[in-house]
């Protein structure tokens, strides 16, 4: 196991390197950061001074080489726009994003799996059909539309919940969190629902499909015929067989929520990382984009590593193996 994890993490070094190269190439292809950074009425002299200062006049490979050299010394560069270390900028935003991501994951699991099981066990019940219909709604609307619709309903018309922002935060070990105060929680409700909507629908559907497969399979029919209790069937067979795709999807969705919650964060003015990366992409603030995506790659590697480990505990036949 330890060897497996170590090997996987060593692969991540390569990936991080590849990612940084891709970002350099990508930003180079999109445009010249100088045009978005410099004041529109800047003189040519000012432009040139900045181009030289940021090293944008050098050939790309040289800029990349310089970046790598600094990165090896632990310096991922400073934001062009904010002149702050890119990592520090990102680190400020991490707690807010993680809080939303975990909350929406929790909501998805706590609601999605039971509802899916229910709909799977009683596929023809009216209530099951309702669950399926409503869950189709969850992924049929773009997140920004749903988000603003909820704001209109719950904040503007009913006045129950705040329209945006993070609300009161409490510091735990120096990290600000919202979920410990009532005000903070109120601010979290709508963004969390907005983030969870798609995931929830998908998990309900996956669980239902998996459950149905198992319920109709011969061995469960046989078990039923033998008079085993329903609960046992659920635990032993259904969950075991549906948890593999569910774990995979939850891992994927969790990663996506952390990395790209931009729409929800924009609509709800939530000070998370997704907004930072979108803003950085739109002004081509390369140091921030590179640092951010390098972190995200590591995060996805870790998430998928955890998912792979979960596989092997769920089903011992799925051995942990990796390139020999």
């Amino acid at each position: 196991m330890a060897v497996f994890i170590l090997r996987r993490l060593s692969q991540s070094v390569v990936l991080v390197l590849v990612m940084s190269m891709l970002v350099f190439l990508g930003v180079f292809a999109i445009g010249d950061p100088i045009n978005t950074l410099v004041a529109p009425d800047a003189t040519e002299e000012e432009r040139q001074a900045i181009v030289v200062h940021f090293g944008l006049d050098k050939p790309l490979y040289e800029q990349y080489g310089r970046f790598l050299g600094n990165a090896l010394r632990g310096d991922l560069g400073r934001s062009f726009k904010f002149n702050e270390p890119a990592l520090a900028l990102i680190a400020q935003r991490v707690p807010a994003t993680l809080e939303l991501a975990f909350a929406s994951l929790l909501l998805t699991v706590v609601l999605g799996i039971p509802l899916g099981l229910y709909a799977g066990f009683r596929p023809n019940a009216r209530s099951s059909r309702l669950i399926m219909g409503v869950s189709a709604f969850g992924f049929s609307v773009p997140a920004f539309w749903l988000g603003l619709m909820m704001v209109m309903l719950f904040s503007v018309f009913l006045g129950w919940l705040p329209a945006s922002g993070r609300g009161t935060t409490v510091a735990i070990l120096g990290i600000p969190v919202s979920f410990l105060t009532w005000d903070g929680l109120k601010h979290m409700i709508l963004p969390v629902i907005n983030l969870a909507a798609f995931k929830l629908s998908l998990i309900i559907r996956l669980t239902r499909a998996g459950t149905q497969e198992v319920v109709m399979s011969d061995y469960v029919k046989y078990a039923k015929a033998k008079g085993l209790r329903n609960g046992r069937i659920v635990l032993v067979h259904v969950l075991k067989n549906t948890l593999i795709p569910i774990t995979t999807v939850l891992g994927l969705e969790f990663g996506r929520t952390i990395a790209f919650a931009v729409v929800t964060e924009t609509i709800f003015a939530w000070p998370g990382m997704g907004k930072l990366i979108i803003d950085s992409i739109s002004v081509l603030d390369r140091p921030v984009i590179v640092a951010y995506l390098m972190l995200i790659v590591v995060m996805f590697i870790v998430i998928n590593l955890v998912v792979d480990i979960i596989y092997s505990t769920l089903d011992p036949r799925m051995r942990l193996e990796d390139q020999r």
Partner: peptide, 14 residues
């Protein structure tokens, strides 16, 4: 930053 969200914040009294 989002225009409608800003208006919503005002209308909601935030």
């Amino acid at each position: 930053t989002s225009d409608p969200s800003r208006v919503a914040a005002l209308l909601a009294g935030d």
